[in-house]
């Protein structure tokens, strides 16, 4: 494989990695900070894609982005409302909303499960025109994705140090302490999920526009892929402040895509993406668990190996 082949591969991995990094950053806020595993991520991602596509197709390439993010806020608000004010279990709230959004997303696309944006003006086509002929001509996707990620990271670095941001972090850490600081944890959960889902929807919107099409399955499995990326990121950057960890999450998204892109080169079928992401999540979560169990496993295996009553002190064990 020559350098001429590797560079485009790397660029694609970087583009897709950065776009999905927005969802990873959303989970960084909801899963790592707020300690809520938001299973509505898939539906919200698709909703961002469909809303963004519909608005762009109607002739508003720039408006499509805030529109998609607003849809994400609404989605996050409903998930948060279900779990904080209506007694629905957190995981279940996500699953229910995810299911409901399947219908809503088809409705948004006008009773269709597929929208084509081949001739649609989007932020990507606009930037492509501007950069056409310059040395950055082929990097327009990368630039938009990178700008979005940088803006979100800067926002998080700012926001998570404000009083509201601290309250959101404390809600995931110790909800009792939030209450005793006279802050309603329901409020912080709602705000946190609204913001996180705005990023998820932005991620979906940009993916759809960069690949010039949306189908109803665009977001399926996204929560696992993003979780895998997030956990890789945590392994990469385990120490440091919240900003360093946010950058780690972005790096995790890129590494995940890179590994996947390389795997594709070695003839791994494309449909294995979701399986691989599931395995990564299982390893990342079960690994530390088995590490704590290891001494016990070792001891019980040691006992089984000595059926003749050999004692630990005789030196033959």
């Amino acid at each position: 494989m020559g350098i001429g082949e590797i560079l485009p591969l790397l660029q694609t991995a970087l583009e897709l990695g950065l776009i999905s990094a927005l969802t990873v950053l959303a989970l960084y806020l909801s899963y790592t900070m707020l300690n809520v595993c938001d299973l509505s991520t898939d539906g919200c991602f698709t909703m961002g894609a469909t809303v963004g596509a519909v608005v762009a197709i109607s002739g508003h390439p720039y408006l499509s982005i805030p529109a998609a993010m607003a849809a994400g806020v609404v989605s996050g608000f409903i998930v948060a409302l279900l779990q904080t004010k209506m007694g629905v279990e957190s995981l279940l709230a996500g699953i229910i909303v995810n299911t409901a959004w399947y219908s809503i997303n088809i409705a948004i696309m006008g009773n269709s499960s597929l929208l084509n944006m081949n001739k649609t003006e989007t932020v990507f086509t606009q930037l492509k025109e501007i950069l056409d002929g310059t040395f950055l001509g082929s990097a327009y996707k990368l630039i938009i994705a990178a700008v979005a990620v940088i803006l979100v990271v800067v926002f998080l670095a700012f926001f998570l140090r404000t009083r509201l941001g601290l309250a959101i972090r404390a809600t995931g850490n110790n909800p009792d302490m939030v209450k005793s600081s006279s802050i309603n944890p329901a409020f912080t959960t709602i705000v946190g999920l609204c913001i996180a889902n705005a990023f998820t929807a932005l991620s979906g919107c940009l993916l759809a526009q960069s690949q010039k099409s949306v189908n109803i399955d665009i977001g399926s499995g996204m929560v696992t892929i993003a979780l895998a990326s997030l956990l890789i990121g945590q392994a990469l950057v385990s120490k440091g402040g919240i900003t360093a960890k946010a950058c780690g999450a972005v790096a995790g998204a890129f590494v995940f895509r890179l590994v996947y892109t390389i795997a594709l080169r070695f003839n791994l079928p494309a449909y294995m993406l979701k399986f691989v992401s599931s395995v990564i999540v299982i390893i990342a979560i079960s690994g530390p668990y088995f590490k704590t169990r290891l001494p016990l496993i070792k001891r019980s295996m040691g006992l089984k190996r000595r059926p003749d009553g050999g004692s630990e002190g005789n030196g033959h064990a």
Partner: peptide, 20 residues
């Protein structure tokens, strides 16, 4: 003693939340 503070946040961040 674990109940009154957020373990994952710094001392000053805990105090800032409490000060409100």
């Amino acid at each position: 003693p674990m109940r009154g503070t957020a373990a994952g946040m710094t001392i000053e961040e805990n105090l800032m939340l409490a000060a409100g």
